[in-house]
Amino acid sequence: MSDAAPTAAVLIIGDEILSGRTADTNLNTIARFLAALGIDLLEARTVGDRTEQIIGALNALRAAHDYVFTTGGIGPTHDDMTADAVAEAFCVALPEHPDALALLARRYGDRFNAARRRMARIPKGGVLIANPVTDAPGFQLDNVFVMAGVPKIMQAMLEDVAPRLRTGAVVHARSLRVSGVGEGDVAAPLAAVAAAHPDLSLGSYPFGHGTVGEIGTSLVVRGRNAAAVAEATETLRTALSATGMTVSSDG
């Protein structure tokens, strides 16, 4: 097994996201979930409710990353086509899963109609992902995890997903707050420290611009080696302070 951290991508599916009608929050939730497991989220894409678009994005992402997480498009209506697209991407059939069928029949009783029955279709070889909120399951097929688009349901599904993932070393982060200056003022010392620590990630994030109040820049140092992160942060603090900038720890 490789010592490298597992990598992941997110595929957000839904015309409602692209139209602006619905604001996506699932990406942030998944990013935080993966970070806590030491899995590097390297890519995210958003596509509409179009089968060929879903297939193309899914095949590209699953070939490039250890894990792919999809959200959206597994409900009971005609525009919920994620299961169809995943089955086609993997070139497998899309039968009704007996366990999913039983869950849904028990959930809906006399209201278990043909539309709701669509949610029991799982690509052949798929393993169900539990949904403690509404019972309608997601599923895992190889390295792809297919989950609901409703944030509350998607987040609940992650509890069943977590034990299935290969984890990595958690990323440590430290941040500095530089008051009264913009990114252009901190760029040179930041670049110098970044060049001296190629195994770390250093970023700058301005704040206060366009608002009344203090402006400045937050600098964040990230890496899997806590000691190296601490050393680089202090080196950066010293370099900035030497130029007369006001630097403090930021959180």
Rank of each mutant, 00 (worst) to 15 (best):
A115S: 07
A188W: 06
A187G: 01
S179A: 11
A226Y: 08
M154D: 01
P189C: 07
A230Q: 14
A226K: 15
G223Y: 13
V150I: 05
D185F: 08
M147A: 02
A188C: 00
A188P: 00
V144A: 06
D160T: 12
I129V: 06
N113G: 10
R116Y: 00
L141H: 08
A191M: 05
G203M: 01
A162F: 11
T211R: 13
L165T: 07
K124Y: 07
R116H: 00
M154H: 01
G208S: 04
V181R: 15
Q140S: 10
V193G: 03
H209I: 09
A136W: 15
P189A: 10
A173L: 11
L219N: 04
I129H: 09
T217W: 11
A191E: 08
N113T: 03
A226M: 08
S201E: 14
V144G: 02
S201W: 07
P206Q: 04
E214H: 15
V186F: 03
Q155F: 02
M147I: 02
N131K: 14
V212W: 06
G223P: 14
R222A: 13
A173T: 06
G149S: 01
Q155K: 12
G149E: 00
K124T: 12
V181A: 09
A130K: 15
K124P: 01
I129Q: 09
G168N: 07
R222D: 15
V170L: 13
A227N: 11
K124L: 10
P163R: 15
S201C: 05
H197A: 02
F207L: 05
A232T: 01
R177Q: 05
R164L: 04
V146Q: 04
R116L: 00
V193W: 02
G125V: 04
A136G: 14
R177L: 03
V146E: 02
A130S: 13
L165H: 07
D142G: 13
L190I: 13
G125Q: 09
T217V: 15
P123D: 06
A192S: 07
V127L: 09
G126D: 04
